[in-house]
Design a protein around this nucleic acid. Structure first.
Lengths: 266, 266
DNA sequence: CGACACCTTGAAGAGGTTCAAGAAATGTGG
DNA sequence: CCACATTTCTTGAACCTCTTCAAGGTGTCG
């Protein structure tokens, strides 16, 4: 069975995470990233590494990069060199065509990995845009490949991350191919809040970092339809909406909307 | 720029391939598969391997499996163990939900790799069904991982295959999220014929291996809409359709339908 | 040759889009 | 810090595309 509301993360829940990692200024390397100290580690790193392995990975993920809101982390056509682990902030990825089509392919948050689209042709095929001020760990891909030849757990982890993205996209195809507007928005909200909850945020409250238009693009709807559907949910007492602030009043109602696809038996 | 009609394959064209590999009965291993002898090699194997590396890969891909039309190669929930390289035949992959939704996530032909969805959770999350009698090479994934730790080209190849699938799915999201029925079907036909051409088949003629309903599921349309859209194309002299036999009379017209999304400038 | 699956076509209807206008929030510059 | 410009969001009404329901046609296979 397939649950489109499920997280892209197959990993442990972290209800105590704050999203802020401490960097201990112990030595000259202190300013560098250390996965070993990062409280997002469980989200983006494999489990069960020994100290030596962890340190070697630390060296790969040595550089961070800040990305201001509205700025692209990478662009379509750009040479591919690295994957990025999101430390803080929120991204969207989208593809654009010559004839002006535009499709948001995903929204990514702390602990998630972006840039996988660039591997196949050595060039990125989409844009990654920060929807709020963000910080990412830069992970040069040739170094990842090198290290994953030596650290089995890392190799497996890379494979899982890519497979997870494939499965996530299957879920989006299901959503786009078979759901009506209300079902899409309900699934979208449940998915977002589920991922946020896994990061220690509320199960019922969330701040949308994207516009109605961006939600619409992701869900294959026009922004007016997104807005109307929000209004409908408010009318029905399922959510409270104040601009981008959403409070889910009735999670099970949302789940019912997504799952209640039962056809009358003939 | 993103071209949804483009092939999932980034590899060389093989206009002379017939789809039948010769197996030379030289020794006791003759009955086994040998990638080294397979004329689909360029489609599913990395390039530039030496004899030794090729032989080691041959050993991994030692088993073939025949799949009759209508039979599942693997099913949702089934334990994941292997990837499969399609030797002959045609598959669909689809996900199903508890509430009876069903979504075709792709159609796969000779030289393409399926099963990637199973990596992340050690269980398959979709069904792979043969749409005609087929034969696949079984590639145990733990052996692939093992070998790709030693053969850099194989490692890179595995990464590219997964990345290619991610990029392909981005294209489907664009199609489902932003295209109208005619545009979807035109993009679908162009994509199919392009992939078939890369395998040595005609650029203009194709035999659909799937029903209108399966096409519809993939394209997010009802079967009636698919049928009507075919009829429209026939009326316009763009294609000839006799049941599942399609001849494309005007490729550029199809391309125009997909790309002519130009909005009038305000 | 008859049963079954698949495909086509028509007519009515629903869901989402488009166009338009106004309200609310956000950002900017004086 | 406030006024103004801009972006974003909401809502209404008309329209259009695709779906739904229905019936009949075509092809295939035991």
């Amino acid at each position: 069975m397939f649950d489109v509301t499920q997280s892209a993360l197959g990993m442990g829940q972290r209800p105590d995470a704050t999203g802020d990692a401490k960097i201990l200024p112990m030595n000259s390397h202190a300013i560098k990233v250390a996965c070993s100290n990062c409280n997002l580690r469980e989200l983006c790193m494999p489990m069960g590494l020994n100290a030596d392995e962890l340190q070697r990975i630390d060296e790969v993920v040595a550089i961070r990069r800040k990305v201001k809101r509205g700025v692209r982390l990478y662009s379509n056509g750009e040479k591919f060199a690295s994957l990025y682990a999101i430390r803080t902030g929120f991204f969207k990825t989208c593809i654009t065509t010559e004839d002006g089509r535009d499709q948001v392919t995903g929204f990514q948050m702390a602990g998630e990995i972006i840039g996988l689209d660039g591997i196949v042709n050595d060039h990125h095929t989409c844009n990654a845009v920060a929807l709020e001020d963000a910080e990412v760990c830069v992970m040069p891909f040739d170094r990842i490949e090198e290290l994953s030849r030596e650290i089995t757990a890392l190799q497996r982890h890379v494979h899982k991350i890519m497979s997870r993205e494939i499965v996530r996209e299957h879920g989006v195809m299901l959503l786009l191919g078979s759901m009506r507007a209300e079902e899409r928005l309900a699934a979208f909200l449940l998915n977002l809040v589920q991922r946020l909850h896994a990061r220690g945020f509320s199960q019922s409250e969330l701040l949308l970092r994207m516009t109605r238009e961006e939600i619409g693009s992701y869900l294959g709807l026009k922004l007016e339809t997104v807005s109307r559907t929000f209004s409908k949910f408010v009318e029905d007492g399922i959510v409270e909406v104040k601009q981008r602030h959403v409070r889910i009043m009735d999670t099970s109602a949302l789940k019912l909307i997504v799952n209640n696809n039962q056809q009358p038996c003939p």
